[in-house]
Design a protein around this nucleic acid. Structure first.
Length: 575
RNA sequence: CGAGGUGUAGCGCAGUUGGUAGCGCGCACGGUUCGGGACCGUGAGGCCGUGGGUUCGAGCCCCGCCACCUCGACCA
């Protein structure tokens, strides 16, 4: 490819609005162009990377027996009514009418289509297990797209669906997919990724894992133990709190605290620290029952866990609504309506001489002792893990970090086969609804994640396995006839040798060519100029390390091929 | 959906008390340069997001709408 003909341009300045490294670099280097919020076009270099990622994914899916298929983007309402999701999914599912007024939708995931494809097609246990997958556009009407390709509305995704006649069979296959995913991420050049147990949601089956790229720029919060390997999404993570110190119990005392309502204000007013206070948070359930949760002042509530205990979706409630005194809610003498749900976090257990609201305006109670003053209370784990908490498995200090979700695998169970009525006949003459697994990887997000992990201050750094081109050929002084002639010949030879080469054929200054090549991130840069030609060499620089060698021109092709092979081998050696 | 913000040339931005628009980069042409975003000259490119209003006159003031950005809520 000649860069003079390459569609797209490169920018010096950070585009307005882009914050995330991958977003900035993809825009600056001419890989993507935004069409609308969360909707992007992929320019030629991005499309080339995308296709390489896809072919690695295809290879691994085929290796575990996957059969590639293609589901439609547009589906009729009826198909999604069979699973109940036409109703249960809200605004994220984009609905519209066709010319006949028929209700249609844009696929955001394809469980229904997958079951539709195999039901009455795969009829016998003999044909299971089977796995079908596709690489195709999804549309999710995200409330808030962000971060360039990290969170978008329209995106390319590999999604796979497997069908099994027993849980054991699914378990075994699930493990195979897990291993394939690890190989995929390694092959596209990622290093700093992990899997975490995740919340399968109210709808899903029992087992779910998320693959995460560990990075500060991620939007998911992760809890890790460096010692025993405990890994969890913040939503499901538990932390062992440091035990509350034993103190001499002091008598209860009601104190005037005036306008001190928040934990900060209270601590400032009474000269205490948040870990010697207990606060209340107030929610309501779907059927409007009040939910009050108490936790130590230095902890925050884990709404997902609280919702699970309530067996209902919950939303933050106005304290007035339930006749509670905002800012002065406390553990003692709390009067609530009969159907109220009250929970106590484990951080309160054994806590002594703490301050809590007096359940009347302007007053708090001092010297409350959990063991002495609370009666028949059970403690639940409802606080978010915080810095300093310890591993629930081994007790070591936990590490809090962030991650980008780059893939997930789910055991779906029979939710879809049951609701849609798919059965296969069994050896005993009966029939059963197959047990399903589903497995997804977002292509664009994977592409952006590679940049998040490897990009540097100069630009993108592509691993050889996914690079849009293997060699960025930058002849300097193309106005010089000798350079121009040799450049044309080398370009032709590289192409003939099967090297994927981007040829900077512009007559521009060295700085322009070199900075562009660094920005675009092609792994090997080859420079020739009157200087190098004087001693018959080409300058070969590795983008990632900056390492430079001068290679005699007659060896250039074989050297380049060797470097390319070495790089690919290095990436693939651990898979 | 809640809060805040921004819309002026391909990109990044300026535009004073209201008087019909500029700068840098990029682009085109000519010339001088040439291994780290060179320089000189010439030129093209704008319905100032959009609809209304105020005014002799609106990029600027007022109202509506739209688009986009950030934080939050949401996220099979």
């Amino acid at each position: 490819m000649k860069i003079s003909k390459l569609v797209g341009e490169r920018y010096k300045e950070t585009p307005n609005g882009a914050q995330l490294k991958s977003h900035i670099l993809l825009l600056r280097a001419g890989y993507i162009k935004q069409v609308s919020t969360g909707i992007f076009s992929m320019l030629p270099p991005a499309q080339r990377v995308s296709q390489k990622i896809q072919s690695i994914i295809r290879d691994e899916m085929n290796k575990i027996g996957g059969q590639e298929v293609l589901f439609p983007v547009v589906m009729p309402r009826e198909l999604w009514e069979m699973s109940g999701r036409y109703q249960s999914i809200q605004d994220e599912l984009l609905r519209f009418k066709d010319r006949n007024g028929h209700d249609m939708l844009l696929g955001m995931t394809h469980e229904e289509a997958a079951v539709h494809m195999v039901m009455n097609t795969v009829k016998s246990h003999d044909e299971l297990p089977c796995m079908i997958y596709q690489i195709q556009t999804k549309y999710r009407d995200e409330a808030r797209p962000r971060g360039g390709l990290i969170r978008v509305r329209e995106f390319l995704m590999k999604d796979a669906y497997s069908f099994h006649t027993s849980q054991e069979d699914l378990d075994a296959y699930y493990k195979k997919v897990y291993d394939a995913y690890v190989r995929i991420y390694r092959r596209i050049g990622l290093k700093n990724f992990i899997s975490v147990k995740s919340d399968s949601g109210i709808m899903g089956g029992k087992v779910a894992d998320e693959f995460m790229l560990v990075t500060d720029s991620g939007e998911d919060r992760l809890v890790l133990c460096d010692k025993c390997g405990y890994k969890a999404n913040m939503e499901v993570a538990s932390g062992r709190k440091s035990p509350n110190e034993k103190e001499e119990e002091k008598p209860l005392e009601e104190v005037f605290t005036g306008n001190a309502k928040t934990i900060d204000e209270l601590c400032h007013y009474l000269h205490i620290t948040p870990d010697k206070t207990v606060k209340a948070v107030c929610y309501e359930t779907e059927d409007a029952r009040p939910v009050i949760a108490f936790l130590r002042g230095d902890y925050e509530i884990n709404e997902k866990k609280l919702a699970k205990l309530c067996k209902s979706e919950i939303k933050v409630a106005d304290t007035d609504k339930f006749d509670l005194v905002a800012g002065n809610i406390g553990l003692l003498n709390l009067t609530v309506q009969e159907d109220a749900l009250v929970f106590y976090d484990t951080s309160i257990k054994g806590l002594e001489n703490f301050v809590t609201g007096a359940n009347k305006a302007d007053f708090h109670v001092k010297n409350v002792c959990a063991d002495r003053d609370l009666e028949e209370v059970t403690f639940d784990d409802i606080a978010l893990v915080k810095e300093g908490d310890c591993c629930p498995v081994c007790g070591e200090k936990l590490t809090l970090t962030r991650g980008i979700e780059i893939g997930n695998i789910f055991q779906l169970g029979t939710k879809y086969t049951k609701t849609m009525g798919m059965k296969v006949s069994m050896p005993d003459g009966g029939a059963m609804e197959p047990i399903m697994g589903c497995y997804g990887i977002g292509i664009g997000r994977a592409l952006a994640s590679i940049i998040e992990e490897k990009g540097d201050s100069k630009g993108i750094v592509w691993p050889m396995t996914v690079a849009p081109w293997q060699v960025h050929f930058c002849p300097l002084r193309l106005d010089d006839e000798n350079v121009s002639a040799v450049a044309d010949e080398l370009y032709r030879k590289m192409q003939e040798a099967g090297i994927e080469v981007l040829f900077d054929d512009r007559v521009v200054s060295a700085g322009v060519k070199l900075t562009d090549s660094e920005l675009m991130g092609v792994p090997i840069r080859v420079v020739i100029s009157p200087k190098t030609m004087a001693n018959g060499t080409a300058e070969v620089t590795m983008r990632e390390t900056g390492e430079t060698n001068f290679i005699p021109l007659q060896n250039l092709l074989s050297e380049l091929k060797a470097i390319i092979e070495d790089e690919i081998e290095e990436i693939n050696k651990n898979i």
